[in-house]
Design a protein around this nucleic acid. Sequence first.
RNA 1: GCCUGGGUGGUGGAAUAGGUAGACACAAGGGACUUAAAAUCCCUUGGGGCUUGCCCCCGUGCGGGUUCGAUUCCCGCCCCAGGCACCA
Length: 829
Amino acid sequence: MEQKYSPKPIENKWQKYWDDSRIFEVSEDTAREKYYLLEMFPYPSGRIHMGHVRNYTIGDVVARFMRMRGYNVLHPMGWDAFGMPAENAAIKAGTHPAKWTYENIAYMRNQLRQLGFSYDWSREIATCDPSYYRWEQLFFLKMYESGLAYRKSSYVNWCAKCQTVLANEQVENGVCWRCDTPVIQKEMEQWFFRITHYVDELLENTMKMEGWPERVLVMQQNWIGKSTGSKLLFPLESGEGSIQVFTTRADTLFGATFLSLAAEHPKVLELCRGKAQEADVLDFIQRAKQSKRNEREAGMLEKEGVFTGSYCINPMTGRKMPIFVANFVLMAYGTGAVMAVPAHDQRDFEFAKKYDLPIQVVIKPSGQEQAARAEELTRAEEEYGVLVDSGEFTGMESEAARIAITEFLAKKELAELTVQHRLRDWGISRQRYWGTPIPMVYCEKCGVVPVAEKDLPVVLPLDVELLANGGSPLPVHKPFYLATCPKCGGEARRETDTMDTFVESSWYFARYSCPDFDKGPLDKERVEYWMPADQYIGGIEHAVLHLLYSRFFVKVLRDLGYLKVDEPFKNLLTQGMVIKDGFKMSKSKGNVVDPDIMIKTYGADTVRLFCLFAAPPEKDLDWSDQGVEGSFRFLSRLWRLVCENIDKMKSVSPVGEAENLSTELSGLRRKTHQTIKKVTEDIRERFHFNTAIASVMELVNQVYQVLESSRNDPLLWPVAREAVEAVIVLSSPMVPHICEELWQTLGHDRLLIDTPWPQWDERALKAEEILIIVQVNGKLRSRISVPADATDKDIEKISFADPRITEFIGDKKVRKVVVVPKKLINIVI
RNA sequence: GCCUGGGUGGUGGAAUAGGUAGACACAAGGGACUUAAAAUCCCUUGGGGCUUGCCCCCGUGCGGGUUCGAUUCCCGCCCCAGGCACCA
């Protein structure tokens, strides 16, 4: 055995062994309990980064741990392989996205292999493979049939640089999430998935998903943004038609003095036609459309508007209300029109002050003597209260009045109670090349026609020339866009938009259960065995996007009959970022640590150990080169412990049940079993690998001490061997290569990964003497050692006999004595 | 503004059910081994005090409270990170 720990040959040896023996390949086994552990699959960007290393290390520990505990563990890996970076890189390097992608996959697969992860590679998926995306196209057809996929013209978020549409979730602070270009609004025909159809279920389930972090659920709830209110109709003064608004404050209707419409509101043009204000309105609309989304943010844009020249009537007061177009009203929320109550809404207040519009107070905030006077208001009073100056509703509480007023108007068919959501349908059309083709054709005669199921997949052509400006080549690639109409057989044009890549990642986890199945997207029996994933692990940055889409997609697949689960991921762990020098690792900050170099210098086990030890998984991890050194040092210390004593340890069996051990040796034995208990519980209950590792380190430290202090004790080696074997088995999910090697060195034939997880011995945990803390008035004053079976009374007696304690008590009266069994006594004087 | 987390040594972090605050590591300092260095091993390491004792006082963002006892629970405040934000 090598005297010095050199990871490279060991890691190569075991990785090869694991590969050759296909030890991590699993199959369905209904006799055993399954455990599906999944980490978010990576985008094949070129090489893995430390965030991946951390994510996949955490997952690997859990997978190996669960396997050793007897579960039938599915632990797959694959590639989120469609996406724009492939196109950009291809243009830049003069290559093809497919070539670029597959080369990256090959490189990254090897990187993952070198980290020793226990994946079942036979289930590997690349989403850009037609054998994968063909089923996605089938889902699209089924969704189209059932109305869950539809086409509409709407204003969409457009990134000029990426030359494509973005989903709302991909717009961050008004700029493109990928390239930071300000996003503009553009009207386009787009395909949408009707995620709003599931809005109630998506929201309700967040209330009962106990295995998910609270903050992710809260983020999703905020994103869905449920809001209960009323839809009210305001008849136009002209007598022709009316305008519908959404409001949560129908109780303030008597205070509504004007109406504000979004610039894109369909009635705007009609309202100003032929009026003196027409030119101003048109000009205003023009400017509003050009204004970038980020300028619409709070505070950044002053409230502005323009009178349309038309009026409507307040259905309660009969008062004439001027209709404005205002820059702060969003077409995409509610009805694109709001009733303005300047006394009780800050935005309306500012607008009214600016354009000198009437302010009418109709709510007296609770706890206030008098209602405010309109002319004295310096800001709107937005809180609930009691209605004033509101006809027959005067004196009612806001909450009750909100409903009463709506019901009153409902009788005249002017109102209804309703619920609004912030969540909007998911626009999935992308004007990109490297994505899943949308299986639709446009026929002059028949219109929009779905591709026949038997003609799937619509294969993305690989023989294209990429355009230098970044736009998609598909619309100019004749062999692709020329199609025959499935209905009439005539000439037709194929849809050249591709799907948002989030569609692929919305169902890949189900496909892992049967990646080779070619009779349909999902093999019922297998998918029912494995789904849902028991544990999903990934970055918090997907809290809304990927995780919400996946939840939606699973409901769709369930309703289409492909799946039986309601939610894809039973438990979710969101790991923190990897930080260096106070910043997230990034090329622009120049603080990236290359996993390849780390593996080369220290070995995979050291890198894994550091990732686990430096912080609990949900927290950010501060990368520290010295910390990595420390992890390497620990593994070297463990290596030495075995190799320096191998002859002595090999010649004995680990102690089983030990009588008559010296204090030191029974102490070590106790520590061994305490450690088994601690590591088991830290991994099983909390995923706190850092404290699990700390306790293993303590055990190693104690073994070294006892080796010294009990050098001549004949029972030393059996006890030491038990301790060392515990260290190896307990560490093996975290640092599998070194442990497998040491395990073999100690003479075991069976692989560690096939060795059952150890069970601690309750009897070994028990000490003969236990330490009791003695407090006087809550302050630590002494420590006493008592027999383990000492009663509270005994502890009290021994404590009062302690000279240090008697000194503290002196001649003062003992007022109270609190004893915490087997732990602590507090004497109050 | 609203909603989540969080604030503990020089640093990363422990303290899982209200019961020894600072486990485990990193860094720093001192020592041993060595011709020397590396590696390794041992000791010290929250602040202060003196009577140097396995002593005393202070200490978990700040101010209060509950309790025999609070890093942990409650109330008020400050700061940091993340999310949402002209959503009617």
